[in-house]
Design a protein around this nucleic acid. Sequence first.
DNA 1: AATTCCTACAACCGCCGACGA
DNA 2: TTCGTCGGCGGTTGTAGGAAT
Length: 289
Amino acid sequence: MGRSPCCEKAHTNKGAWTKEEDERLISYIRAHGEGCWRSLPKSAGLLRCGKSCRLRWINYLRPDLKRGNFTEEEDELIIKLHSLLGNKWSLIAGRLPGRTDNEIKNYWNTHIKRKLISRGLDPQTHHPLNAAASAATTTTTATAAVANSCLEFRNASPPSLPVADIALMNHQTKFKILTDSVEDNKCNSGTTEERQPDDSLEQPNHHRPINLDLSIGLVPFLSGSTTTQSSSANSAESKPGVESPYELRPAAATAAAAATAVCLCCQLGFQSGQLCSNCQGSNGFFRFC
DNA sequence: AATTCCTACAACCGCCGACGA
DNA sequence: TTCGTCGGCGGTTGTAGGAAT
């Protein structure tokens, strides 16, 4: 037995939104806030599916949206984030203020893919195109990107560094899958003091607790700062013979950097070296934004 | 001027996880 | 524990508008 539809499709409009519908939705949300999307259309007098209302609001009507062309800095940030996160458009959008996942996804498919190809890079793996063919036989795209990006999974409890990203934490479950994949790939991203001794590697994956507290670090290349901690020892990307399109910071350096400034977009230089307003969590700790 | 092709992007669809009963 | 509902996500489609022929 299939699930019930999210709305009564026979009595809902589809297709492009009219100006009047937009105004109804805006005025309703202004008055009542984003409540229950399912009941919103009826309350607002809209013949639309709740999902459709949500999409319209989030992607086009929200007042904090930044319209207009993507800047070169945004381009590079998207590329970098995609190399880390794969097609996690909502996560990527979370780091681009005023941009939506749908917008970024479309932009990726229409512009950035081509841009990467013109650079000789595989848009999915971010590896050189001639190497991508052989790499494809051993890795999958997002998993490989994450594994090669030296994600750091810390086992400290409670965390010694409060770098848990709220957005990432909202996706713990999905990242658990990725962590499993990373473990499977035996990513050598951990620091010596954080990693278990060799015997831990010999344990079956399911015997080890997976810590979902996750931090990601990148070289602040856009800000023009030097990559002072870009030791190549831990990075698969920087191993001899493995051409690295993007320089990634090893896990140890990530932890050290996180203790000082953990804002990912700031580290990327997207905030011009200033901590953005989202960096500081409600508990007073800094976090990625 | 008409037609075809291409591009960009708004919108839809189906799936999944969280959550509450 | 199971089931239904809901919100959210990523993939895909539809279509308007511009470019090329």
